[in-house]
Design a binder for these strands. Structure first.
Lengths: 349, 349
DNA sequence: AGGAAAATTTAAAGCGCTTTGGTAAGTAAT
DNA sequence: ATTACTTACCAAAGCGCTTTAAATTTTCCT
């Protein structure tokens, strides 16, 4: 059933029917009621494409998945982010359009998306430190919100980010306070902006406490379990191994833990681990006392915030750029303890 | 730049320009070339909505995320599935539309999607044993492919599924062959079709070897790490604990392993674990000898297959329903060994 | 009752594309 | 040279909706 049929059935014009259903005021109350009932009875649903064409609004937002030939893995973190965002879209009647884009055609893809009009705005994930997408999107004029920031970008744009620098600074200081001197950082992909901020916080904490960051204790890569495992294993086999690790995600931390246990060491006693925890639904750092001491920030919540911000920009394009910096919670779990050589000194209770 | 502008610029009709760009034959070679160049030079992109309205094809497929108020968690497995599917969509120029749907409005939502015409077909995830969606979608007439099956559904429909029954039967037999008698099953949500098939395979294997399945060793729930952990922990504290576990996903298995280690037991020696392994990119069951003995089947590949099947149905709606049953690989890792009481009998080399 | 103002309703244009049903020019056959 | 096909192009209708501008009806005042 389309609008024309419905209006003929009611003996009214398409105009009136359309207005009645879209809540415009210039329709008599009785008429509106009659129309609404008829629409429901005939389960009329307006065609989204036609509506979009007429209004210029797609009622959809785009998320781009960059597919690189090298690391074509979809992040579980992305899944939770999506879940959060889609809660908001659902509430506002928006759809979410995911497009995979080979990263060598990224510019082309964004221009495509903007021109072909299938979305009203876009969420940018995983910005690099020097990300060209922000400038590009601004030039194109498509509303967008970045999940994360691009340090290299000087102009004002919409973003939602975690205070990664402070978060990793605090975590490092916490370990230093426990007497750890050799602290490893198992970071995310080097090019990622969040990874460089974490490195920065870590470096800063060490240096301000008179420690010299050791390049041999710093790794950067895709945040898989296998990466966490192999990195930690290698480091634990060094002549002068670290006594503590900083992990970039709960998945990496699982790998680190596996390496520690495989070496016959005890987590939280022989080796300490602090991880960033995105509070993933399926990999909750659970229990009364959580397994890992962690810097926690829900990525699902970040998804919600990004989506809300984007919808707000879409509905009111004039407003100034919004920024939202989220602090993490440093929650103490079972994975941290005093540095091993200090353990001889009896701990209080 | 739209079609009208482009055609005026070229001094040609919209018809000719449209035909030239869409590869229709009735255009002179020289004209086509000229048009293509002009289109590229002016970076003309046809408006997807208008095109869809005119052709009746959306060039998009829908994936529905059921959001229940109770378990509103997005599965990392879903993320990998999506990744696989989107590879295929990308290759064929399709978009992927994700819509969250509160599960009490599911029927409404599917009708909506079909009527509003924003997608050409739909992928159904996580079918229940008695799933009403299949009948509904057939009635609606929207092309669809189910990832999994619905045992209760008697009609013919398109699906891609893992042979869960055989897979868990083989895994159970493998454990029984190793001398295990008390084997626990940490299954997925009870209502899920795949879970009931796995239970079936497990039960069948035990019974055919003269073992009686113990209800106390069978759990069903959302497949989180915490669930694996708490289930395994409880069972290990039983008077007569299991010597082996069957896990429903790698994430659950991680939880089981945590419980085992927390009890001071050794995985693969004191307690054996076999898990289903969806071959998730971020949680690879890696190493030269994988950590877990597992029944492996790439969910990403399943995503590809579903997508391919759906696109094939969309382009040729007449064809008969296709089914694709995938067998798992039972790969032996470090998490299984002979049942503990047999270990006194020296193993051969 | 008569006219202005307000409340309803409608016809028709337009969103940007495809596609049907042409026409005009070029080529081959008679 | 006439007819009959091809070939290359075009005008206009139509996809299903919104929205402008105008028409109609109702209400209110004097």
């Amino acid at each position: 059933m389309n609008l024309k049929e419905l209006s003929e059935l009611l003996g009214l014009s398409q105009t009136t029917v359309s207005r009645a259903l879209n809540g415009y005021p210039e329709v008599a109350v009785a008429t509106r009621l009659k129309i609404q009932q008829a629409a429901a009875a005939n389960s009329y649903r307006p065609n989204a494409r036609a509506k979009g064409l007429a209004t210029g609004r797609a009622m959809a937002v785009g998320h781009v998945i960059p597919v690189s030939s090298s690391h074509e893995i979809v992040n579980p973190i992305f899944a939770d982010f999506i879940a959060g965002a889609s809660e908001i879209y659902l509430r506002h009647g928006y759809d979410m359009v995911l497009s995979s884009v080979p990263d060598d055609r990224e510019e082309h893809a964004y221009r495509d998306i903007a021109a072909n009009g299938s979305v009203d705005g876009i969420i940018v994930n995983g910005p690099h430190a020097a990300d060209e997408r922000i400038g590009l999107l601004r030039e194109i004029g498509l509303p967008f919100v970045v999940h994360g920031r691009a340090s290299g970008e000087t102009t004002d744009y919409n973003w939602v980010d975690v205070n990664n620098r402070r978060s990793f600074m605090r975590a490092s200081e916490f370990l230093i306070d426990l007497g750890h001197q050799r602290i490893a950082l198992i970071n995310g992909l080097e090019a990622m902006d969040f990874a460089s901020r974490r490195l920065d916080g870590y470096t800063h904490a060490l240096q301000s406490r008179g420690l010299v960051p050791d390049p041999a204790l710093i790794r950067s890569d895709e945040m898989t379990e296998a990466y966490g495992y192999s990195s930690a294993l290698q480091m634990l086999e060094m002549a002068h191994p670290p006594t503590a690790f900083l992990g970039s995600s709960i998945i990496v931390a699982l790998g680190i833990r596996r390496a520690i246990e495989e070496k016959g060491l005890k987590l939280g006693r022989d080796v300490s681990v602090i991880t960033h925890d995105d509070d993933l639904g399926y990999l909750r750092n659970g229990g009364d006392v959580p397994t890992f001491t962690a810097t926690k920030s829900s990525v699902r919540q970040a998804g919600r915030l990004c989506a809300e911000q984007l919808l707000s920009i879409i509905s009111d394009p004039g407003q100034p750029a919004q920024q939202r910096l989220l602090e993490t919670e440093l929650t103490v779990g079972q994975s941290t303890g005093p540095a091993p050589h200090l353990i001889t000194r009896p701990a209080t209770a």
